[in-house]
Amino acid sequence: MPASILEAHNLVKKYGDLVAVNDVSFAIEEGEIFGLLGPNGAGKSTTISMLSGLLPPTAGKAIIAGLDVVRETAKVKQIIGVAPQELALYPTLTGRENVRFFGELYGLRGKALIERVDEVLGYVGMLERANDRVQTYSGGMKRRINLAAALVNHPRLLFLDEPTVGVDPQSRNHIFESVERLNREQGVSILYTTHYMEEAERLCHRVGIIDRGRLIALNTPRRLIESLGGGVIQLGLPGADESVRSAVAALPAVRAASFLAPEGAGLPEADQTSATGGQGKAILKIEALHSNEALLQVLHYCNEAQLQILSLDLLEPNLETVFLNLTGKSLRD
């Protein structure tokens, strides 16, 4: 079993009453690309801040390469690289000056610095434009410089916080390829956060799903999707009727059925009761053991019960559906 490069033990971060990160534990193995998938405000950036020694945790601890992040921060900082979610660059300096600045802060000097700066700029495909000011770059080019700056110290563990936000498709692909090459050719371990499920599915060996500060699932993308069983069906009905729900849940090809929170009500806890009271459409989420059979049985039941079907969705088995199944919400607002 490969050694863990990072271990997070019961991390908690509170801002007053708000619990931004709530008892999060996971480990990243050496050479692994680990994804944290969750919507905005889930606590991804806060987790990275605690893991990279920027923010002291309210409780819990983090170990990187055997070093305690809080007690041995200086050593930890030498072996990690962080590309923050914000474009942490100086817009009036050139791409090269930016990367050079961070290289110098790591203690690189002279020839070693010049070579390494060129190397990472080449790695992200930004050598040509390196001497232009960052403010003249496209969003994607800025993201690539942001990544280059995180690589300048040869990190063993790389934190990439939503590295593709505001990026054109071409740069996006370039970033994906850079991330994959770094991992494959140099064995860099990567913690990759995103709210795009396609990215997590494509890049990550394992994905942790995070919502409202809690890690609610953790597995390979394939296993997470398999956990959906036979798929998810969403049925639009004129009202949320408990007898309908229990009848559907009792169908042989159905594993579970529940009403989704109505549109606009953020909290899933504000669940069926609020959906029942409304006059509008209610969405019944049906987890199937086998989607074809479940679909037939559900349609049959509705027909028998003379229920009007307002809408019908068979959800693709992907991480988006996994998230929806776990939280009753969609990843993107």
Binding site: S49, L54, P84, E86, F102, F159
Partner: peptide, 12 residues
């Protein structure tokens, strides 16, 4: 706001 401070303090 640009995040430069956050990045700088992930450096030693």
């Amino acid at each position: 706001v640009g995040g430069a401070l956050r990045r700088i303090f992930t450096l030693p």
